[in-house]
Amino acid sequence: MARRSLFGKESRMSQSAADRLAAVPETAPAVDPDDLLVRVARGDESAFAALYDALGATVFGMARRVIRDPARAEEVAQEVFLQVWQTAARFDPARGTAKSWVLTLAHRRAVDAVRHDQAATNRENSYDWSPGVDHDQVLETVTVRLEHEQVRRCLEGLTELQRESVNLAYYQGYTYAEVAQVLGANPATVKTRMRDGLVRLRDCMGVEVS
């Protein structure tokens, strides 16, 4: 498959060359990711390095949260940034921020990875796979590991069903139909709770849409 080799781990560059590149001091001052991404689209490798320095931790941390397995999360982060490099020309600053563009892409990939891995596991273990989710355990890991104060506070401001719907979808990669199943709720209700939850979070975090 073409995409495999494109995103595979093998590199055509020697290890010493890679080390030299990695050793280049980080000269980039705080630069607007929007500008960086526009420069990346023109093939600017130093802008790519700066963009990675600006967003790498968010992409990797989010992926690890969703996927859990750090090695797999690292793979996904690598795929994401390669995709950013290849398709940077599609970014249109008039339609959204670079950060949002990269993270939307990254979350999609992370979620696809857990769903794909889960499906593979289910196929392999179809005889003993139990679809039951330990509901309490899920909610506990979801809430305990939130580090960011404001996000935590805003999530606490949601109703339980809103919070669980957002958490299970965004951090665990569940579809809303699966969320409904886990929570024993109506799918239409879950869709509504997701919307109410996001609206409340948006307002609580003071997200401004230009």
């Binding site: 989010m62 950060k99 949002s100 939307t104 404001q150 965004y170 996001l198 979070l201 948006r202 401004e208």
Partner: peptide, 8 residues
């Protein structure tokens, strides 16, 4: 999307 970005 910007809200989800904060979650990330």
């Amino acid at each position: 999307h910007l809200t989800a970005l904060r979650l990330a």
